[in-house]
Structure formats: C-alpha cells, structure tokens
Simulated scan of single mutants.
Amino acid sequence: MGGGRHPARLIFSAAGRSWRGAHRGNNEDSYLFSSSAAAVADGVGGHAGGEVASAMVIQNLAAVIQSMRGRALSDDYARESIATANYGVFRRVQHDESLSGMSTTLTALFCAEEDLILAHIGDSRAYLLRDGDFSQVSRDDSFIQELIDAQKLTPADSARHPMRSVVLKVLTGRNDSPNSSVTLSRHQPCEGDRWLLASDGLTDYVPDELVKETVAAGLDPQATVDALIALSEQCDSRDNITAVICDLVQGPSRAEVAVGGAALEIYGQLPAPGTRY
C-alpha cells in the first residue's frame, strides 16, 4: 500500500475491532478505518449472505478511500463511492443467485475539505463526544425509530419490543431503490472530538450510560474499542459487535486503510488499488 502524505490538517487517529459474539456462529459485521475515513457495516440478519454484503461494501469502499491517497472527499464523490460499493452487491448476486436478498447497513464518516461527511443507512450508529457531551448523531432507519418519532413508543420500551431488529432501509445492491438511499449530513470538525461508529450488537445491549463512560474514559482508541467489546460480552450481547473509535487530531493524512470483521475474514487485507469485488 502507498504511503503518500499530505500537509497537516485534522485527521482521524482511529482503531476498530469486531467480535462474532458468544451466541452467533459467524460474523456479519465489517469495518474500515484510515486517517480520512471510517465505516461500520452490519450484514442484515435473516437474509442470505449478510456477511458477504457487508464485506463487499467495506472492501470496495476501502479500495476507493485508498485510491484517494489521503485526499479529502466531496459530497458527490462520497455518494458515488457508496453507490459503487453498493453496485458490487448487485453484481455478486447476478453471479450467485443463492445470495439473493443479501443486504447491509452502512455508517461511514469521511474527511471533507472543510468539514466531515456522515453517510448513514440502517441501524448501525454514529456518536460524537465533544467537551464531555456524548450524543447520537445518526438516526436509525428502523421500525422502532418510526414508532418513537410518532410517539407511539418510548426509547425505554424499545429495547423490549419484538420488532426492534426490523430495519427499513439498507444497501441491497439496487441504487435506484428508495430503500437503499443513503443519508448524507455535514458536521463541523473540532480538534479533540471523538466519534464512535458501532453496530447494534453494542448499542442494543450495552446501556447508553456505560457506552458514554467508556468512550469518555480517556483511553486511546484501541483500548477504548477493546473495552467496548468487553462490555458487550459482560452484557451478554446476542449479536455480532463492532466498534470504531475516531479521534480528531492534527497530522498528515495517509493512504493506508485497515479493514476488519467479515471484510477481513472473507477477503483478507486490502488488495492493490483499483480492485473491486
């Protein structure tokens, strides 16, 4: 992989980890991180090839990020990159009908020229810790969130709802489907900010206050994701668990991209730039 650098600016100092969990036979989560991007994808359970969908989207997105060699992305390029990664799912299904119906969530954060771009679809989540305030930035594309928005359900009761795992929007490979439409939002970066991207295996089982305490404990990114995974085990998470921590720091951007979870287990380390799955 190339080691190209650019002048110092706000970049990500990041780490990630994915764990199959104690109750699952495979891992359908994937993640990536670099100095300029981070993402978590959760293959939707109950559909064929969820792990393949998340792995393909993350690997293809990682290849695009690596080809940028640390340069900032525009809104249009971020959207185009996700559409390209999503289309790879469609092409794979064309070649293997047994994977028909596979899909994945995606929550991704990109460094743009002046700010950050958050791309989101599904029920993986993005949180921001700034000056001690910890808040969820993404909105779940879920049946439960619809009920909460309509004031038919309280957040406290949502954890016990039998349809809490129903996701309304995911990447299916079909870019022309409104149910595969990714939401993009812009956010002002501040040095010292800490972002958490996580699959619902963490957020569905670990209380928000414990997540906040762990993210705000002052540990480095790798120790923080390790602590979050340990908390998930203590809380007996019934799902795969994935977390990526991104600290905003001053420094030169780099081209290298790390991948993990199903993306690493199925495809291995990121191949030469330009490769698509």
Rank of each mutant, 00 (worst) to 15 (best):
G4L: 12
H6A: 08
A8G: 00
A8Y: 03
I11E: 01
I11Q: 12
I11R: 15
F12A: 10
F12H: 14
A14C: 10
A15Q: 13
R17M: 15
S18P: 01
W19L: 10
R20E: 13
R20A: 09
R24W: 02
S35A: 11
A38W: 14
A39M: 04
A39Q: 05
A41I: 00
D42E: 07
G43N: 08
G43W: 10
V44R: 04
H47T: 12
A48H: 15
E51A: 13
A55P: 04
A55Q: 12
V57A: 13
I58E: 07
I58F: 04
I58H: 05
I58T: 03
I58M: 11
Q59I: 02
Q66G: 07
R71K: 15
L73Q: 07
D76T: 08
E80T: 10
E80A: 14
I82P: 02
T84S: 13
N86K: 12
V89G: 05
R91C: 03
R92S: 13
Q94H: 14
M102L: 06
T104A: 03
T107M: 03
A108K: 05
L109H: 07
C111K: 14
D115H: 13
D115F: 03
I117T: 03
A119S: 13
H120I: 02
I121Y: 11
R125Y: 10
L128T: 09
D131C: 02
F134K: 04
Q136D: 08
R139C: 07
E146C: 02
L147P: 07
K152L: 14
T154A: 11
D157W: 01
D157V: 01
A159V: 08
P162T: 03
M163L: 09
S165W: 01
V166L: 08
D176K: 08
S177T: 02
S177M: 06
S177W: 08
S180T: 00
R186D: 05
H187S: 04
C190K: 15
C190A: 10
E191H: 15
G192D: 08
G192L: 04
G192N: 14
D193P: 00
D193L: 02
D193E: 11
D193F: 02
L196R: 09
L202F: 09
K212P: 00
V215T: 09
P221A: 11
Q222E: 15
T224R: 10
A227P: 02
A230M: 05
D236R: 15
D236W: 06
S237N: 09
R238V: 02
D239S: 11
I241N: 15
A243E: 06
A243Q: 10
C246T: 04
D247E: 15
G261Y: 09
G261K: 09
A263K: 06
I266W: 00
Y267W: 13
Q269W: 08
A272W: 00
T275G: 04
R276H: 11
